[in-house]
């Protein structure tokens, strides 16, 4: 297991003005009772609304914050006690703050990181060449970081995090603010990295396409607690989310009244039917539709990831006061 977390908890003391001079202190629980393990080579998406405890968890995994209670092992190390040792085995990319030197050319930043992480020259060249090629860095390697576009900078950030060849790459909102093309490029690079090198990926994101395209496993957190953790497919089943059957009919027909169907949306000859898999199977539904009209083409779709997560939030236990 590359990450082992057990009973993780983190509270913050918040002080508030309670009177003219008095201040009262209040304990705020940011993360409570979080337990999970991640095997090597996994791709895990960690999602939740703002303030759900994502960043706090990430900070505890990377050794920035010390847990209030619970046990954390990352790469076999205790992050808060063995911070520097862990840093050599870990790559971290923050979408909203830079690891690079703002006024230095990109290449200078890489060379400094090479020295900081004590990366050997051969390995450094190898990794740099590889990233330069796959991420297309060549044209702006000698440009100062502050002059790079966000997309270019992110590619630089990822390279910076990979120079020391980490086993685990933690990405905090890596695609935030990027245009579609940059996002796609980044995702395919990361997927490739995971596939060829077996680098474990842990990413937090608001962009569910990141999850859809990169992550085998999804963990949803809210109010500091893990709401769900599992393979995407399994989660879909567990929340009993609607699936969609899309049919192109030969000629328009009335499809209302089929048991198990929760919504119908017609779009010319194309009709979308949402149905609950627990009440009617796709095969049964197709048979029922075929009985009423001639089907030219059909497709069965999964519930969107948004839908799954929305349902997970709906199902969560009321937060304890």
């Amino acid at each position: 297991m590359i990450i082992e977390v057990e009973g993780l908890r983190r509270t913050f003391r918040v002080s508030e003005k309670a009177g003219r001079f008095r201040r009262s202190h209040r304990e705020v629980v940011a993360v409570q009772d979080v337990s999970f393990t991640v095997p090597e080579g996994e791709t895990l998406g960690y999602v939740g609304p703002n303030g759900a405890g994502k960043s706090t968890t990430i900070k505890m995994l990377t050794g920035i914050l010390v847990p209030t209670a619970g046990r954390v092992r990352v790469c076999g190390l205790d992050p808060s006690r063995q911070r520097k040792k862990l840093a050599r085995r870990l790559g971290v990319v923050f979408g909203q703050r830079t690891q690079l030197w703002w006024d230095l050319p990109l290449l200078d930043s890489f060379e400094l990181l090479r020295d900081i992480y004590r990366v050997g020259q051969t390995q450094y060249r190898e990794r740099l060449d590889e990233c330069t090629e796959l991420l297309g860095l060549a044209e702006f390697l000698s440009t100062p970081v502050r002059q790079l576009s966000l997309g270019q900078r992110m590619r630089g950030e990822i390279t910076a995090a990979l120079l020391h060849d980490p086993r685990l790459l933690v990405l905090d909102e890596p695609t935030i603010g990027l245009d579609l093309e940059s996002k796609a490029r980044l995702r395919s690079f990361l997927a490739e990295l995971n596939r060829t090198k077996g680098t474990t990926l842990l990413l937090t994101t608001h962009d569910l396409d990141d999850i859809e395209q990169l992550c085998r496993r999804l963990m949803v957190i809210d109010h500091g607690r893990v709401l769900a953790d599992g393979e995407l497919a399994g989660l879909r089943g567990s929340v009993a989310a609607e699936r969609t059957l899309t049919v192109d009919l030969q000629e328009p027909a009335d499809l209302s009244g089929i048991p198990g169907v929760t919504a119908i949306k017609a779009d010319g000859p194309r009709v979308h039917l949402e149905f609950l898999p627990s009440e009617v199977s796709a095969a049964q539904l197709i048979t029922a539709v075929a009985a009423r009209a001639e089907i030219r083409d059909l497709a069965v779709g999964e519930a969107s990831i948004e839908e799954v997560i929305r349902r997970l939030y709906d199902l969560r236990p009321a937060p304890q006061a």
Partner: peptide, 10 residues
């Protein structure tokens, strides 16, 4: 948050 970025370096 740059201080956090420093904390993840060895």
């Amino acid at each position: 948050g740059e201080l956090d970025a420093m904390l993840i370096r060895p």
